[in-house]
Design a binder for these strands. Structure first.
Lengths: 313, 313
DNA sequence: TTGTAGGCGTTATCAT
DNA sequence: ATGATAACGCCTACAA
């Protein structure tokens, strides 16, 4: 381009304060520079942190991100996927764990296969049944490590507050709990397990139910941090000492976890980084490469909410 | 439309599994059915809850929402606004408080005025200098009410953990604090005020600094809940009893506030509803109406973190 | 009721 | 290096 022409064009653009129209560009290029992020609930700190990571990476690459909260409902999830496809997003990031539902899975696979066939990208940030690149945490391993840690502290009656039963992540974390108990020669007792729906309130209620049923428990392992919050609150309400009387552990290491009155022992999941990484992987796919699904290791973060069982030593 | 034709079209559409192209539709209609939500940080629970409210309302009206975290930086904020305009969003929702910066304000006004001139909508969910419909909370009144409440409990040395100085919301909440102290015949002492940047960590550090400087304080009023979290944590670390030795109050009433070890006394702000309402207002504007800026009252929610000053009774 | 032409603002292609 | 033209997929308007 000749220098003078260049100058003239730029000047004219400035005078008419020309604003490029991404819609027209998207239509012409068949690329929209947008991503869709499907989460279970953007107001859940875990997903909010992932969203922030994804957004930062997207923004740095001149992408805009749509955020979609499905509340783990299959119809809403599919409606969002369809909508994102209509909007011709370049990629879809599945941040929540797979929902176990046959019909849903079939439809989802069909939609996403077709989507990818058009040169677009699907990235997962939690175990999905649909095969796609992404980065997922070792849910089972993390839960196993945490349970083993509690066992090593001397606990034998460890309650488990689980996530919703139809979510794959819930199942994996429960399996890790079972693995460790089995390995320690302690069986899994169903009366020690209660669903907390991955919510604060659910966590509080679950602990309440568990205490009624099994007053002998010395530790509570909540399958995510928000439920652990609820659990801690319920215990505080009942004036049960933590960790003196009951130890509490969580999973995810959301930012607030370190700032609780009794800082929470938990399994670290690098949420923000996963979000960033998710976008990076998407760009790779769009560039024609074929990154693999990566599994990031988890790590037990010991804080003040856990200790030996009461009566011990 | 004739019934048979209709059937034939639908059948053909199904066979070719036709997916409407929103990009093309947007170009043709000059309406994209998308909204941009600009927040300070989507991983901050306050904004995440607003986002969820907005998203729900958007979704129900077949809109998709872009989320943009500016970190309260003027350049990022403007870049996001420009980007959203490029993407031809139908509306922009400003969820964060105004950033006090002359050049930024001027540019923002220019961009948004032009944007609105094209039949698009701007909605504010926090006091902006740009005039637009929306719903904002009574920050000053809420802070005044909370401070008065603390005074009524008998407190005289009330520390204030403020938000970033260049944010209008910070200023309003500080003014409310000052109003109440002045009304009570207690002057504002700058050594009782410390910036906590609206972050958990900032809140913890601020309390730390305040305790060094003014060991005589009997109450801490944090200008938002996340800073109050940090404050509570710092106090717990130092084994300072709450509310026995020091009372703590927050602002916003984010969901977690009720679930802390010591449930937090705070000023309720209906975040989720504000998000929903923001989208509703936007649709009104787009429908040609001219809704006014609404102010929602705030309310002090008394919980366990506050009580009379130590020594009193 | 159905069919057809033009335009939305870009990009890509092909001539000049 | 530059200019002209045909897509991109949908919508609106008008004609048949």
């Amino acid at each position: 381009v000749r220098e003078e022409t260049r100058r003239r064009v730029l000047k004219a653009a400035a005078e008419l304060d020309f604003t490029p129209n991404m819609v027209a560009r998207s239509l012409a290029k068949a690329r929209s520079n947008t991503v869709g992020l499907i989460v279970h609930d953007i107001s859940d700190p875990y997903f909010a942190e992932i969203a922030r990571g994804l957004e930062d990476a997207a923004n740095q690459n001149r992408y805009q991100a749509f955020v979609c909260s499905s509340d783990r409902q299959v119809d809403r999830e599919l409606a969002y996927v369809r909508s994102l496809i209509s909007y011709r997003v370049d990629g879809i990031v599945l941040a929540g764990g797979a929902i176990e539902d046959r019909a849903y899975q079939t439809t989802l696979r069909k939609l996403l296969t077709e989507f990818e066939a058009q040169g677009r990208a699907v990235v997962q940030l939690a175990p999905q049944v649909y095969r796609s690149p992404g980065v997922v945490t070792d849910n089972r391993g993390g839960a196993r490590a945490m349970t083993s840690y509690l066992v090593s502290l001397g606990h034998r009656s460890i309650a488990f507050v689980s996530g919703p039963p139809h979510i794959r992540t819930s199942k994996a974390r429960f399996q890790g709990y079972r693995d460790a108990l089995t390995a320690a020669g302690i069986g899994v007792d169903q009366s020690l397990v209660e669903n907390g729906w991955f919510t604060v309130d659910g966590g509080a209620k679950a602990v309440s139910a568990l205490l009624e049923r099994r007053p002998d428990i010395t530790a509570v392992f909540a399958a995510n941090d928000v439920m652990a919050f609820g659990a801690l609150h319920e215990l505080a309400t009942r004036a049960v000492e933590v960790p003196g009387s009951i130890s509490v552990a969580g999973f995810d290491d959301i930012r607030m976890a370190a700032y609780l009155h009794t800082p929470l022992t938990t399994v670290r999941v690098p949420t923000y980084e996963m979000g960033r990484e998710g976008m990076a992987i998407m760009l790779e796919v769009l560039a024609g490469r074929r990154p693999r699904l990566r599994k990031v290791p988890t790590e037990v973060v010991e804080r003040a909410s856990t200790g030996p069982p009461r009566g011990a030593r």
